[in-house]
Amino acid sequence: MKLIEFLQNTEKIDEESVLYVKRIDGQFLPESEITILNLTEEELEWKTYEVTEKKCPGFEYFMESFLIKEFMEDISSQYPTIEKKCNRLIHYVEFDA
């Protein structure tokens, strides 16, 4: 699944999950492949690079799903298209989070 596809269905997001995304040419993009993990209590204590090494090599930590859902709700009126919302989320993850 691509990041933009994931964001089109935020009402179905399992808020306990964590999103990991694969960069394309060094960047997170709307077309970036994602993996969604439901981590155990023990795994939640691991450093993010340990999770990616053991559970999803080639991916990077992106954000907890409940935060993504909240963020998308907060910007819904400011950004009219899913593409603009996705790009705003990427910018937030890269520079503000």
Rank of each mutant, 00 (worst) to 15 (best):
M1S: 10
K2Q: 12
K2A: 11
L3A: 04
E5A: 08
F6Q: 12
F6S: 13
L7W: 01
L7P: 11
L7E: 06
L7R: 02
Q8M: 07
Q8N: 12
N9M: 10
N9F: 05
T10P: 02
E11D: 15
E11T: 13
I13P: 04
D14Y: 09
S17V: 07
S17L: 04
S17T: 13
L19G: 11
L19N: 12
L19K: 09
Y20P: 09
Y20T: 05
Y20M: 10
V21C: 13
V21P: 07
V21F: 02
V21G: 03
R23Q: 12
I24E: 06
D25Q: 11
D25Y: 05
G26K: 08
Q27R: 10
F28N: 07
L29F: 03
L29N: 06
L29A: 10
P30W: 01
S32Q: 01
S32I: 07
E33K: 09
I36L: 15
I36A: 11
I36Q: 14
L37E: 06
L37R: 04
N38G: 06
L39K: 15
T40M: 00
T40V: 00
E41G: 11
E42H: 04
L44A: 13
E45L: 15
E45A: 11
W46C: 15
E50L: 14
E50Y: 09
E50S: 14
V51L: 02
V51T: 01
T52Q: 07
T52V: 14
T52S: 10
T52C: 10
T52K: 04
E53A: 04
E53I: 09
E53M: 07
K55S: 00
P57Y: 01
P57N: 06
Y61D: 07
F62Q: 14
M63G: 06
M63S: 12
E64S: 08
F66Q: 14
K69L: 06
K69S: 15
E70Y: 03
E70P: 05
M72L: 13
E73G: 11
D74W: 05
I75L: 01
I75G: 03
I75H: 02
Q78K: 14
I82R: 00
I82Y: 01
I82V: 03
E83V: 07
K84T: 13
K84I: 04
K84Q: 13
K85Q: 13
K85S: 01
L89C: 03
L89Q: 01
I90E: 02
I90H: 01
H91M: 01
H91Y: 09
H91D: 05
V93R: 14
E94F: 03
A97R: 14
A97C: 12
